[in-house]
């Protein structure tokens, strides 16, 4: 069963990498990057059970946090060009930027 799961995850990785390489817009690539992070967690889990050593599942938590923060950073940079951008600045001080 874990063989099938691992194979399916690898197939999904292949499709997502195709989308990341072809992806016409930036958002396709950002979404593909996020999906690859998720698939890496899944691969870590299924491969751990496949080899009978699921001790490294905790690493998946770190990957999940990194994935979330990384995607936020990429999209925030794309939108504002500044990682510390505060959206309340626009409301309180119009014309500040």
């Amino acid at each position: 069963m874990f063989y099938v799961a691992t194979g399916a995850i690898l197939l999904a990785l292949l499709f997502v990498v195709i989308r990341a390489i072809k992806g016409p817009t930036v958002f396709d690539r950002a979404l593909a990057g996020n999906s690859i992070g998720t698939l890496a967690i899944l691969l870590l889990a299924s491969y751990g059970f496949l080899t009978g050593r699921p001790e490294f599942l905790d690493i998946g938590l770190t990957y999940g946090l990194l994935n979330l923060i990384g995607t936020f950073a990429v999209l925030k940079f794309f939108r504002h060009g500044d990682l510390a951008y505060d959206i309340t600045d626009d409301e309180e001080k119009p014309g500040w930027k």
Binding site: L13, V17, A20, I21, G23, V26, R29, A30, A32, G33, I36, G37, A40, L43, L44, Y47, F56, I59, Y63, N67, G70, V74, F78
Partner: peptide
């Protein structure tokens, strides 16, 4: 040629390389 795409692809490369390290 689009640098933003290159940055995201480099991030994807790192995630895949981390998977290789786990294997």
């Amino acid at each position: 040629r689009n640098m933003f795409g290159v940055v995201i692809l480099a991030g994807i490369y790192s995630f895949l390389m981390a998977s290789v390290m786990i294997i």
